[in-house]
Amino acid sequence: MTVRMLAEKLDLECISNGDGNREVTGCYVGDLLSRVMGSAKEGNVWITIMSNVNVAAVASLADVSCIILAEGVKPDADLEAKLEIVDAALYTTPMASYEIAWKIHELIGV
């Protein structure tokens, strides 16, 4: 399933489009940026409540397919500015991380 299809199914609010055609390979949930950098896998959806500028750099280094900000979190202005140079799309949703991850599992089966 592509990032764009996933976003539609989950009714996510799009902040930055990124590459919507990327294939979603799985899901990683985490807020400690150094953990995410080491543990998220290429193509994963990354679910987090962090919204500062380093999120863009971490998403790029970990090569995630998209970022979902949970619990209604909105990105900082600095993060939004940095998204232009990142492939990963950025979404926000009122759902909590558990609910998002559960729904992703139901959609992609991993």
Partner: peptide, 11 residues
Amino acid sequence: LPDIRNEPGFF
């Protein structure tokens, strides 16, 4: 400190 290289373009 983890052995991860700096990406000057980002950081």
